[in-house]
Design a protein around this nucleic acid. Structure first.
Lengths: 353, 353
DNA sequence: CTGAAAGCGCTTACAG
DNA sequence: CTGAAAGCGCTTACAG
């Protein structure tokens, strides 16, 4: 074999990181030119583009993002934060919010919508004041271009902090304490109404509802919507029992409701619907035969149960896509006034009602 | 009111981002000094520290991370990636991996372990070759210091790609195709053994196992460990049925096993255990009365079922903490040879076995 | 269409 | 213990 063949053939990745400077030298052009082709600017002589491409291939050059960010003021990173108060989140333990099917679905949806736009998500949990400040500083330090926020609890001060600091932000859901921020929401009143109507159409006449935490705007709206519909349908009194969005709380609430002889129950989220169904079974009450149960969210929890849970689906993917679109608009035009969007929920009929 | 009082009192956050330079000017010291106190270096004259602190408070200065990263070559960011192949992940849909309780728990654990060390997690899913290359480039571009990787499927090429590119990386679990990378694992053989022993100690003598995808190293090990123990316990033949880690696959497998008259079943993960229990109930088979079922992982799924699922707990938090520690060590000393750690699983007895 | 040069905001030897 | 200065790797007016 000719020893000259031992020349390094197209090496996959050179050991030492190369720079724009080096590429320019090898291509025999200026750094500006390399920068332009790397960034896909138009109006560059073909022979320059070629030379640069070749040099990039030869060196395995990849641009340094810190340097780029330093001058462009854009990071291509968005903070995805789940915030709440100590109390609400301690139930799961820090870092376990993701174990909640709903937040996991939202986080996943957000990631999915960020991906095609080529922006990377930094995930952050904010359960106390220190962490909330950290979120604000994070983008003030120029680590991220904005934040996509989902509050796990009412009275969250983060939305207000963010808007005061003029940090681009879009919330999932209307903030429970009004703040001048953009948000995308799903019509919870309509969702509550859907639940009542479905139960009614099945023949249920003695309805009950397992509410979510009262301070959570969305939970409140689901209740309001449910009651408005039952009233319209001529169903006088509705039994109510309070839950906290956890499986156990749903089970406890169901026991109270069962004692009041309900034949149809609307649980304000799937976790509680699962709890309700389990509690019913333990007491020999058939679902949906003796009592129909309908949940909310359409999370994986609804499928981990028999019967599978009829539920009100939140179009999370669509919400996520809208949130992302909105946020990037705000990043491009920080002066933009807050914008709101409300999507429609959808009934998903399965086994439990 | 004296107009002089209109002076800007301690403003919370000045509109315009200030720089080191500005702080230095106000404090009447050099930029180097400001940098030193900002970074908490020791050996600085008290009066300088004071002046700088005051100037920082007055300006609301926060350091620019891009500038800092550019010179220090440290980002304080770690990539948390879940990778798999199209096939394995399409089952969930991109962005929905987090909906799987197990990955959600791992991701959460990783976030929890990164938090106290002050490094931020960028979450990334890698389901095809393009995305895998994106992961490699991400850290080559200097966007992150290293990667914490959990593979959703065997034959994942990412570990090898990463180690070839000399990117600091730590895997959750031993890679199914050997690669020179560090990893932290949980002893799956021991876990399988634990399951067999527990079933045996409950009096089960006709055991069955619902396996996971055969190419997944961990699934294989659980099977091996289970069989080794049953053999040692003198239980001749064990019925086996293949599953894919999904709830449905667990249900289907259970039907086969039931037909073979088993009285104790080990499902290789909780999802399948839930499916198995649901399938048993639908056929009027009592769990654990007629057949005991034991799962694996100890995810939230195990609690969403009645009876609650007895399972083999993976100490995810400990694994996550170890992975993080290891990775930061590697980042500090890239030449370090790959290191492996294997933690012990634990039996969690609940209602199903 | 291309290049020389300034500048983004930090950190870190190097002197003193 | 402190400061002047160089330099990290890019992008972007500004000329030409």
């Amino acid at each position: 074999m000719d020893p000259h063949d031992a020349h390094p053939a197209p090496l996959p990745a050179p050991p030492t990181a190369s720079t724009l400077e080096e590429v320019a030298r090898i291509a025999g052009v200026s750094r500006a030119s390399v920068s332009r082709v790397v960034n896909g600017k138009s109006g560059i002589a073909p022979h320059i583009v070629e030379a640069v491409m070749a040099a990039i291939a030869a060196t395995g050059y990849v641009p340094n993002r810190a340097a780029r960010t330093l001058v462009t003021r854009r990071t291509g990173i968005v903070l995805v934060v789940v915030s709440g108060t100590d109390t609400s989140m301690r139930e799961w333990g820090i870092g376990e919010v993701l174990a909640d099917p709903f937040f996991a679905r939202v986080a996943g949806g957000l990631m999915g919508s960020l991906r095609p736009r080529n922006v990377d998500p930094v995930l952050m949990l904010a359960v106390d004041q220190t962490e909330r400040e950290r979120v604000v500083n994070y983008v003030r330090e120029g680590n991220a271009d904005g934040v996509l926020l989902v509050s796990a609890e009412a009275n969250d001060t983060l939305p207000a902090m963010l808007s005061a600091a003029k940090v681009p932000v879009v919330l999932f859901s209307r903030p429970s304490t009004p703040a001048p921020v953009s948000y995308v929401d799903v019509d919870n009143r309509a969702g509550g109404g859907l639940a009542a109507e479905h139960l009614f159409s099945r023949g249920c006449r003695r309805l009950g509802i397992i509410t979510g935490p009262t301070e959570v705007a969305g939970a409140e709206d689901r209740l309001t919507g449910f009651l408005a519909s039952t009233q319209r349908l001529g169903l006088a009194d509705v039994a109510t029992a309070a839950g906290t969005f956890s499986v156990d709380s749903g089970a406890h609430a169901m026991i109270q409701l069962l004692a009041q002889g309900v034949d149809g129950v609307f649980a304000s989220n799937d976790n509680m619907a699962v709890g309700a169904i389990l509690a019913a079974h333990e007491r020999g009450v058939d679902v949906p035969g003796d009592v129909a149960v309908i949940g909310y969210d359409d999370t994986i929890a609804a499928l981990m149960c028999r019967p599978t849970v009829t539920t009100i689906r939140q179009p999370i993917e669509a919400v996520a896509a809208e949130m992302t679109r909105l946020l990037l608009d705000i990043v491009d035009d920080p002066g933009m006034p807050p914008r709101h969007e409300v999507l429609a929920p959808e009934l998903v009929v399965r086994g439990s009602a």
